[in-house]
């Protein structure tokens, strides 16, 4: 009798273990699929474009001759736009998150703002482009410039930074706040001496994930009038004659990497398509590198934390 019961029990256990194995395998395949597809796409790009990745490719302006054409104006443009984006989105995003998490009273207004922020993260990027075209280009008169592009992409990644910062703040144990308040600290003292330092790993991650999304964005940048052929760099502060002002570069016309890639892809000559593939490699490597830095920063700061 007892042996029959244990037989049944063994059957149940075996069945459950079988399921465990199936789910594990399916999960592994699902995970591998994403990685394999990305790897295949990247390999295809590398096979097409690696020959063009010479120093000249990074130091030449675009040209009608594909073998002389390079991405100098495009990568400098992308880098400068990213700087403006970071300088606008990071202070605004972190400040908004701190307010919502630490200062804001819990009422329907804050609730509304919170729902809005979450929704903004899902708004298609072209909408930001159209908004920026009206606001920055025409009403504020910034023109089709690096400043406009940086502000537009800054607005676009603002929700990402706000959400990431709030998550990081929430992860800090309540005991830390209570201990500080108990010692008579003001809210700002708590925030600046404890919360920001402890949350900085999470904040950096949010910032870099936002920036790596912004660097590949094409639609809003085209909408606000990024150009296709640019064979000069924005003015370096205090250089040239008459000397450029310290912020003239913000108002310079510009192009960015994805636009340069898109233009080369639509040309008839296949040599331009090779250039497009090489530009694609540069964009993907830049994105991967930024994500790598995010992971490294997070683990470094976590290792240093001592509650």
């Amino acid at each position: 009798m007892a042996s029959k019961e244990s037989m049944e029990l063994r059957g149940v256990i075996a069945r459950n273990q079988r399921w465990d194995l199936i789910v594990g395998t399916v999960g592994l395949l699902a995970t591998a699929l994403g990685v394999i597809i990305l790897t295949l796409l990247f390999l295809d790009l590398v096979l097409d474009g690696w020959r063009r990745l010479t120093p000249e490719f990074f130091l030449n302006f675009p040209s009608r001759r594909p073998e002389e054409a390079g991405i100098l104006s495009a990568w400098v443009g992308s880098a400068l736009v990213m700087i403006v984006t970071a300088f606008t989105a990071v202070p605004l995003g972190v400040a908004a998150a701190i307010y919502l998490e630490e200062y804001a009273p819990k009422n329907w207004v804050t609730e509304l703002i919170e729902i809005n922020v979450t929704n903004l993260a899902a708004v298609p990027s072209i909408i930001y482009g159209l908004l920026a075209l009206g606001l920055f280009v025409y009403i504020l008169g910034f023109g089709h410039s690096i400043l406009t592009a940086g502000l537009t992409l800054g607005l676009m990644i603002l929700p990402i930074i706000i959400v990431a910062t709030r998550e990081a703040l929430r992860a800090i144990p309540v005991a830390i706040r209570e201990a500080a308040y108990a010692l008579g600290a003001t809210r700002w003292q708590v925030v600046s001496d404890h919360l920001i330092p402890y949350a900085s790993g999470g904040i950096y991650t949010g910032v870099i994930i936002g920036l790596s999304r912004a660097i590949g964005e094409t639609a809003p940048v085209i909408t606000i009038g990024a150009l296709t052929f640019i064979a000069f760099l924005p003015p370096i502060p205090f250089s040239g004659d008459p000397p450029a002002g310290p912020f003239d570069w913000l108002f310079s016309p510009f192009t960015v990497l994805p636009i340069q890639m898109f233009n080369w892809l639509s040309r008839p000559q296949s040599a331009f398509h090779v250039n497009a593939a090489a530009t694609g490699i540069v964009i993907i490597v830049a994105t991967l590198a930024m994500n790598g830095i995010a992971i490294w920063l997070r683990s470094r700061i976590r290792a240093k934390l001592k509650w």
């Binding site: 302006f61 675009p62 040209s63 009608r64 009038g225 150009l227 296709t228 052929f229 640019i230 064979a231 000069f232 016309p253 233009n263």
Partner: peptide, 21 residues
């Protein structure tokens, strides 16, 4: 694009030409 490229080479950067699509 070809004309802009040649013209800017000729002017050695004194004039900037931008071309959009």
């Amino acid at each position: 694009e070809a004309v802009a490229e040649e013209y800017q080479k000729l002017k050695k950067g004194a004039v900037k030409v931008t071309v959009g699509i």
